[in-house]
Design a protein around this nucleic acid. Structure first.
Lengths: 156, 156
DNA sequence: TACATTGAGTTCCAAATCGGAACCCTCACC
DNA sequence: GGTGAGGGTTCCGATTTGGAACTCAATGTA
């Protein structure tokens, strides 16, 4: 199976990664959340080739994660902005960053700190059960398969 | 810049993605969290070529995200198991799955439901501020740069 | 003894993708 | 008329994939 066919999977993770799982794409998204919006800015910050950047941005556009917004006419110049659908990926980026801060620490410390502007506190995300409010770990979760894919989603 | 050099970045997201950001790797991790442990099982479920799977598992091993555990001697057979460091990536997978369930829904519904065994409720993860307990969105966060990289992490 | 099977890879080759650099297009400015 | 900015596309050689076959050690089976 080719990588570009994984959007055919019944799995939500697979379909999500079909849009954002390519090399570079999650870094593009990280930059989006830091306020980067222009092609050349992405290109210089990431060091990715223009060709690949162009391809990744197109996939994000097609996936509805970013949209092009004109910031000037004549000459027409457009920038890439996260849509609401795109902003909903923020928890993914935050958890990736927190995991890196904890398990791959840099000698000079974490590059950025995220401050919750409402309360002024430092954001430390945890996985919490919205039902009981408890912190959740992988071992506390039981996965139940949708009967429509009996045997096709879970192993064995 | 080549993709494999991104582990040199000061950014925690980049260093994290240097290990798990390759095509297929996050799908391997998804399967790990569903209980898949054996080479052939990964290979059949993902449809990835054995060559690529071998490479991705090696990177996960090198990154300390999985470890090899013998499950029988003669012939020696080993399986891949998540380490504590690896299990700490669970929030990333959960948020990817939830995002897919919401924004790329499948006509037959979500493939799996995650039940919090402690309370029996369905897990619905939200990004919450551990300081004030409020739900957090991207727009509520102010990013503060570590002075050591003044100008090298944030745009402009 | 001979043969097939299992698990976990490695090797080989053609096809696709990447990295680097150059080029293009539109418009504005000097 | 030349230069520059922004946002790409084109080209080419190098790397990585996808697909399939092969290896190796040990075990089951005839």
């Amino acid at each position: 199976m080719r990588w570009q066919d994984i959007d055919q999977h019944p799995c939500s993770v697979a379909r999500t990664l079909a849009i954002i799982g390519d090399n570079w794409t999650l870094l593009v998204l990280r930059d989006c959340f830091l306020g980067v919006r222009r092609f050349d800015q992405f290109q210089q910050r990431l060091g990715v080739t223009r060709h690949v950047l162009s391809d990744r941005l197109r996939k994000l556009l097609d996936g509805g994660i970013v949209e092009k917004v004109a910031y000037q006419q004549r000459p027409l110049r457009e920038e890439y902005r996260l849509t609401e659908k795109g902003r909903a990926l923020y928890p993914v980026i935050v958890h990736l960053a927190q995991w890196g801060d904890k398990y791959l620490p840099h000698p000079l410390g974490a590059p950025v700190t995220r401050i919750h502007t409402h309360c002024g506190g430092v954001l430390e995300a945890t996985l919490q059960c919205s039902h009981c409010g408890e912190a959740v770990e992988a071992r506390d979760i039981h996965v139940e398969e949708n009967p429509h894919w009996r045997g096709k989603v879970l192993p064995r």
